[in-house]
Design a protein around this nucleic acid. Structure first.
Lengths: 163, 163, 163, 163
DNA sequence: TTTT
DNA sequence: TTTT
């Protein structure tokens, strides 16, 4: 009935821009948010939270965000689930963002990632997302996960868009 | 660096109260939060979001919350991970709540679950949590999951407490 | 750069619906939000926070909200200022809401205000708003306050709309 | 019943640290938060939102925040009121912060305010707050306003502390 | 495994 | 001017 999340943290990698078959942009990235306390061993800990953006916001994020950049994200928690190739139901929790603020310009900060001007075309960043196995699924219930296991966009229609 | 979540929804079941070996109370429940739009098929959808509370708040939740009750939850997103018994890393996302508001008193609303006065002793609710297999783990990195696979509290020290 | 507010409380009066000259609906109400602690004298205290909604949401609020109803409000803080008739600058802080949830249906709760079905036409609720003096102003800087001192809508154009 | 605010913006001045008679630290500053749209004239607009912090957080803010610094603030809206010297009731809305994040270190950004290392002793910054007249009041109802009209801390007890 |  |  009400579902609001606000996060401030740093990108763990460059964002990944894809397109649905009908041409809608969708970008995924993970932000590391430091916890407000240290573990019993005295180490700083962080939560690594997956974020998804759609449409215009997806393209802006792909153009301006880079690994290590401090970023504010506003959105809602979404929990989707799919059956994996072993017939087991897998739950995936993501933040569907509707507002992203770039708290560091390309000039400053960051994690030594050269960086500089925004890239005009977000190049394909290759495989390596969190899921495993050769299945895909994940959309049996109208949810949004643009990422198949081989790193190619999977089949989603515009009707899957969250707003 | 900043991690804030606010949810309003309904409990999908009665909450489960457990205690850590050192006697700290911890309560888990899931709230169903209706999405602000319907799916392409016109059906209402919801996200089912797991919530964890600790200490005094855990006991208050166990005493006053019941299945179906409208509830506001404030907290932070926590992502923990553990290796399951097949050697695969499993990610679990929960909201660690520090503020819970009961938006329906025991008198009104609810889902016809008898209910009424708060129970004085939260009875043990037994098995059936989300994890599978006979392992346990989940705490290799100082994270908080009080629930083992056989429904018994697992070994956590007070140092695991989030605040 | 980011400005987000979430409140849960009760209406102190029925909401007031007005229209701008160009016909845009705008509704104002105040919600009382209990503080999480008591004063030194042991009394419960509350903050009384003015809320403004626009367009479709304004009409829905006017139709379904009533004095005493428990309500969740999501929006942003807006601070506008104007020069009053004594030449003094007055600051007004309001929450401009973009999401309002009715946590009590007309059936239950409420403050014994008869109530029941939503009114089809929100009747004119007359004077008595917060400002004083016979001036009006308040819009010298493109801000939104639809309420003049004599209880009549003042001159705002569609361009004043916040979204 | 629930009252949560999250803001990201820049300080309009250096923060002002004061102490209550019993020695509790309290710091006030204003942050400018750009609106998500431009006015009809195409100008960027901002809301100027007063923030109050207490105790340890007050001292940290006084030591590390400076004019122009990008800052995240988490807290609750508080509306207090007092009778001014003309016998008129004045309403003051502030954000009582319980979490402040410094999004720019002393090295980078800022508004050319020399700056650098945190000051060890927050010097008295003198008069010039928003209130006017020679009265004071403002605390008849157990509210927290550490600022009297002549810029000196006024009489508040520890009991006025919000948490 | 899901709530109204 | 304030709600339960």
């Amino acid at each position: 009935m009400l579902n609001r999340v606000i996060l401030i943290g740093r990108l763990t990698r460059d964002p990944e821009l894809r397109y649905t078959p009908s041409g809608v942009a969708v970008t995924q990235f993970t932000i590391a948010v430091d916890r407000p306390f240290t573990s019993q061993g005295g180490e700083r800990e962080a939560d690594f939270i997956p974020v998804v953006t759609w449409r215009q916001l997806a393209e802006t994020c792909a153009n301006y965000l880079r690994k290590g950049r401090l970023t504010a994200v506003e959105g809602r928690i979404q929990v989707r689930n799919y059956e994996n190739n072993e017939g087991k139901r897998v739950y995936v929790t993501e933040v569907i963002a509707d507002n992203v603020r770039f708290l560091e310009s390309s000039r400053e900060g960051g994690s030594g990632n050269g960086g500089g001007a925004p890239r005009e075309e977000a190049p394909y960043s290759g495989g390596g997302n969190r899921s495993t196995g050769n299945n895909s699924g994940g959309y049996s219930r109208g949810n949004q996960d643009p990422f198949s296991d081989d790193g190619k966009p999977i089949d989603i229609s515009d009707d899957d868009l969250p707003f």
